[in-house]
């Protein structure tokens, strides 16, 4: 059996055969961290510690983490209003994230942005966005910078099923294709734009079908299957790095919680939610890792416990942090000379 035959005969999932065990364990850790972070944020919100609303991504952890698997700090992402998971997957510190949620000076945006504008420029996260579709042209601009400056970094643009009907989506995809820019459009199709079903609001069956109109590859995958997402994005990132232009990846997934904390859940059935909760991306990935001997139950439990401790420490840090001075309300409007 030749080496090539050996590889092709390897029937293990893409992620298992592609990434080192340590990388896979770290991915599981970050997925747990996203889940616990969202739960901690929800709990803090209910205790009145968080001002305003927020959009939780519980149930979408595989999409966030598997997409960021091969990204370095030099690679950029643009994120969405449901962006906590992207931020953590890209390597942000949950303490500073909580501090931002609590409106503290130690937060990523010094308390000016909150949940919907959280960013971590150091790890290449150009920020969540409060405008549906707002990040799409910006991602194309970031990719233009990389191409113009001769760098090989790529930009991953997260957006939801709602954004695919915005004009910005079409303008951005078109320009990325015209200029062959290194950008990967990752649509997290969680089936609802607030309450409106994507199936109702979108003329095509799969959002990835729209890639055809912009002459780029488009693929739809099970967004709760870590390995499936990782493989699709791997191919798209490689294409981008090779200078061959943009791709569109559609991750089919589901948010367990409502659109925001104001959601009264009048548009979904309990049965539908339970059906999707049974496809928990974290449980699936954990089982997969154990099945392939990457770790054992005790190891997985230790990873899960570590996430809980990290989140608790993050909340404590945020609580203890100072608020911005009220007199600084106009600070950061312009550059400080």
């Amino acid at each position: 059996m030749t080496a090539a035959e050996a590889i092709s005969a390897d029937n293990r999932p893409f992620a298992i055969r592609t990434y080192a065990p340590a990388q896979l364990r770290e991915a599981l850790r970050r997925m747990y961290l996203i889940r616990r972070f969202e739960e901690g944020a929800e709990d803090s919100y209910m205790r009145g510690l968080i001002h305003g609303t927020m959009h939780l991504s519980i149930g979408q952890e595989a999409s966030a983490m598997a997409t960021c698997m091969e990204l370095t700090d030099a690679d950029k992402i643009t994120s969405t209003h449901r962006g906590h998971g992207h931020c953590i997957a890209k390597g942000a510190d949950v303490g500073r994230m909580f501090a931002e949620f609590f409106g503290k000076e130690t937060g990523y945006c010094h308390g000016r942005g909150g949940s919907m504008h959280i960013a971590d420029v150091r790890t290449g996260n150009l920020g969540a966005n409060g405008i549906v579709g707002g990040g799409l042209p910006i991602a194309v601009g970031a990719a233009l910078t990389a191409k113009r400056l001769g760098r090989d970094d790529v930009t991953v643009c997260f957006f939801g099923d709602g954004a695919n009907n915005e004009g910005a989506f079409h303008e951005a995809l078109n320009m990325a294709a015209v200029w062959k820019l290194p950008v990967v459009f990752v649509c997290e199709n969680n089936r609802y734009g607030m309450s409106t079903p994507a199936a109702y609001a979108t003329a095509v069956r799969n959002i990835a079908d729209r890639a055809v109109a912009y002459a780029m590859p488009g693929v739809t995958v099970d967004g709760n299957d870590f390995s499936a997402v990782a493989e699709a994005v791997h191919i798209a990132v490689a294409r981008a790095r090779a200078g061959e232009g943009p791709s569109l990846v559609e991750n089919l997934t589901y948010r367990w919680r409502g659109h925001s904390k104001s959601d009264r859940n009048r548009y979904r059935t309990k049965e539908e939610i339970e059906e999707w909760m049974a496809r928990d991306p974290i449980a699936r990935f954990r089982a997969e890792l154990i099945a392939h001997g990457i770790l054992d139950e005790a190891g997985a439990d230790a990873i899960a416990a570590d996430a809980v401790a990290t989140v608790e420490a993050g909340i404590a840090f945020a609580k203890d942090s100072p608020s911005p001075a009220v007199t600084d309300v106009t600070r950061y409007v312009y550059a400080e000379s």
Partner: peptide
């Protein structure tokens, strides 16, 4: 068991 915040501008 806490009384949760269920609305954006809710204090009580």
């Amino acid at each position: 068991v806490i009384l949760p915040k269920v609305d954006m501008d809710m204090t009580h």
